[in-house]
Write a protein that binds this DNA or RNA. Structure first.
Lengths: 129, 129
DNA sequence: CGTGTCTATGTGTAGAATGCACATACGATG
DNA sequence: CATCGTATGTGCATTCTACACATAGACACG
C-alpha cells in the first residue's frame, strides 16, 4: 500500500508560489538580496530552501514587474543583487493577502469537519441530501 | 509591468494536493464517486473544478492505496465508480491534518507581519545585521 | 602565489501537479 | 434517432519546484 508515493513521508502542503508573498512581505520592510532572503524564508516555514528555486523566483518576479534589482558592489564579498519592491508589488501583496484569507477560511472549514466528526446526523456510509 | 503574467488577475493560492484531503475527508463520512465529489469540492473552496484533474487524482489515490473503488451499476444512469477510504487513507488524512496545522501557523505569522507593519523598529528600507 | 572556505548568484534537467480541450458512453425523453 | 444530463476518462501544454551542478569574488593561511 502506497510505497513509491509520498503517502509515507507525509504530504506536501505548501501552496503554490508561497515564496512570492514571503519575499514581497520582507522587501516591504527592507531591501534585501537572494542570499539573505533565503535565510528569511527558512525561518518562515520553509525548511531547506534551495538556492535555485529562490533565485529563479526572484528573476521571475522582476520580469513581472513586482520587484526591481540593482547590483551592489560596495560591501565586501561577492556582489549582491539588491531587490526593491515596486508599487505593483505592493498591490500584488495585497491581492495575496486577500487570497490567503479566503484560503484560511477553507482551512477552517476543513478542520471543523475533521475534528467534529458528528456534525452530520448520517449513519456511516450513505448520504442523501 | 506584469502584463502576460498572472500578477494582474491575482495569485494562485491553492496548496498542492489540496484535493486529496478534501476527498479523504468526504469519504470518511460517506462513500462517494467522482461526479459527486466534484460538487463537494466546488462547494468547499474550489471554483470550477475540472473533471480531468479530479478523476486523475482519484486514480492516483487508489494507486497509492488510500482509497478503493468498485463499480456501481444498480442506480439509473451511467455506472459510477464508488470510492471508499482505506485504513491507510485515514492515517494519511491524519498526516494531512498535522501538516495543515503547521501551515496554518505559518499563515498566522504572515498575517501578523502583514497587518502589524511596525513589529520591527527598523527605519524604512535599510537593514544591517 | 596557490588552495580552501564563505558568500553569492545562477543553470540544466527531470518530475509532479494542474488546467484546458476533447473523447466516450449510458439512460431517459421527445 | 437525436439530444440532453450524468459520469468517467485521455492528451497536451504549462507551470512549479526539487536536486544537482557550475561560476565567481573576497579573504585567510601557509
Amino acid at each position: 500500500m502506497a510505497d513509491k508515493q509520498e503517502s509515507k513521508r507525509g504530504p506536501e502542503v505548501k501552496p503554490r508560489n508561497w515564496l512570492v508573498p514571503v519575499i514581497l512581505l520582507t522587501l516591504r520592510e527592507w531591501n534585501s538580496y537572494g542570499y539573505e532572503l533565503m535565510e528569511r524564508a527558512t525561518a518562515f516555514g520553509f525548511e531547506a530552501m534551495n538556492p535555485g528555486t529562490l533565485y529563479r523566483t526572484l528573476r521571475q518576479m522582476e520580469k513581472e514587474g513586482i520587484v526591481e534589482s540593482t547590483w551592489e558592489t560596495s560591501k565586501g564579498g561577492p556582489a549582491r543583487r539588491m531587490y526593491t519592491i515596486t508599487d505593483a508589488g505592493e498591490a500584488y501583496l495585497d491581492f495575496w493577502a486577500k487570497a490567503l484569507e479566503q484560503y484560511q477560511r477553507n482551512m477552517d472549514t476543513f478542520f471543523k469537519l475533521y475534528t467534529g466528526r458528528s456534525l452530520r446526523p448520517e449513519e456511516n456510509d450513505n448520504k442523501e441530501e
